[in-house]
Design a protein around this nucleic acid. Structure first.
Lengths: 232, 232
DNA sequence: ATTTTTAGTGTAATAAGTACACCCTTTAGT
DNA sequence: ACTAAAGGGTGTACTTATTACACTAAAAAT
């Protein structure tokens, strides 16, 4: 029964999606921001956003909008929070569903980003952002911090093959604190969710460091065994 | 600039709020549900919901709708998740922002509830619910479980004065598992967020059990001391 | 005085977390 | 060919937290 609407008398709203896009580069957690090309606040830094389509669900809207910016699909995307202050957008009443995304910066299609004058900013050095976007970013960082301790989401920010040092640097960047190397390795390896490859990375050291990848099968096995992922 | 809207061409949506209302009674976690009085799905069990008003923010909408059902204000209310499948409501496209509430069943205005044929159901014995409400309930329970371990939200479900046994029963109801009495007391008392009153409860035992209340000041002191609330 | 019912407490064993320092491997420079 | 430099990789002792577990206390009802 498409088009049916018995709620016609009720107030209707623009509904948008905004994306907080995290990346990891230069040993720092980074955010992909765009320069607004239209009023209000043309030329201000902003999260990437867009309106939800008529027959589109929210996840799809977020992933479409993210795809427009990054050229990527099948990206880790999670709904964060919905913002609905009546005056949050000076252009009109817009209810915005915020999502955060974790992307591998090496896979980014930078041409797509160029169309929006997109740029990466380290999270501890963000520019001024429009509207209520600072609050969204803040909440996203907190969510990512909490989540990364109990779910293996961090791997979404690394290339498929990575060294343990790099993984540690990622956790240090997310949590903004130093982690003891031995304890970290002990912990992560004891969970048995990584597979060591027969391959070394020789870029960042003379000696070379073993490359690992996250192993879904091992992870699923761990979970069905009643254990859970946890980094302290 | 009220009424301004530069986004007129974009699609507009009905936006609703649905409330998952938790209570604690009979040593069980309960949910307050209403019987729908209108189509679609008249007479089905449902969460309490309603549309967001033109100049109303989402939190206020949730609290207004919750007030209509319970007669209460200043209730613990937290945004849960936003549901936007195009066909989630057969009456038309409605994007729904779900909130969950924790209320003290003893404070409930049951007359208000009567107008909606509201009834409490223990969470392990819920009736069939309309639309995507089962998923909302599920998510709310999981959120409450997680949250109750790391934030002192459980107290919102108890009367101001309570015994340690009752507090323990509450945690057992939320987590659906038995908890060791000695360990639980040791834990909760060691955090020093309760104040023991000079008063005993003699309803549930001959000997009488000390009454406690949650103490915001002690809690704030603990938090600013860098500690955090945690139940295992 | 005995029974019943819930309240309230301590300790020992185990597991988890933390702190900490040295050797390994390779390559670049002399 | 020796040495220095730069990350890579590992083990252990100590401390803290978690778990498991069983009895006594107080009051009221009979």
């Amino acid at each position: 029964m498409p088009g049916r609407d018995i709620y016609q008398e009720s107030e209707k709203f623009n509904v948008a999606v905004d994306c907080i896009v995290f990346g990891f580069d230069d040993d720092r957690l980074q955010l992909l921001l765009i320069k607004r090309m239209f009023e209000p606040c043309r030329d201000c830094w902003s999260l990437m956003g867009g309106f939800v389509g008529k027959n589109e669900n929210l996840d799809n809207a977020a992933s479409r909008i993210l795809g427009r910016l990054t050229g990527l699909k099948d990206v880790y995307l999670e709904q964060l929070y919905t913002y609905g202050e009546p005056d949050r957008d000076p252009g009109g009443r817009v209810i915005s569903v915020a999502y955060y995304a974790l992307i591998r910066t090496d896979r980014l299609d930078s041409e797509a980003g160029d169309r929006y004058s997109a740029r990466w900013f380290p999270i501890d050095n963000l520019p001024k952002l429009v509207f209520d976007h600072p609050g969204m970013v803040d909440k996203a960082i907190k969510r990512l911090r909490r989540k990364s301790l109990i779910q293996p989401v961090g791997f979404e920010l690394l290339p498929e093959k990575f060294t343990l040092t790099r993984l540690q640097k990622l956790y240090e960047a997310i949590h903004q604190r130093d982690i003891d190397k031995r304890n970290f390795r002990k912990r992560i390896l004891s969970m048995n969710v990584l597979t060591r490859l027969d391959e070394k990375d020789r870029i960042s050291s003379r000696r070379g460091a073993w490359l690992y990848r996250f192993d879904d099968i091992k992870y699923d096995r761990m979970i069905s065994g009643g254990d859970h992922f946890e980094i302290k």
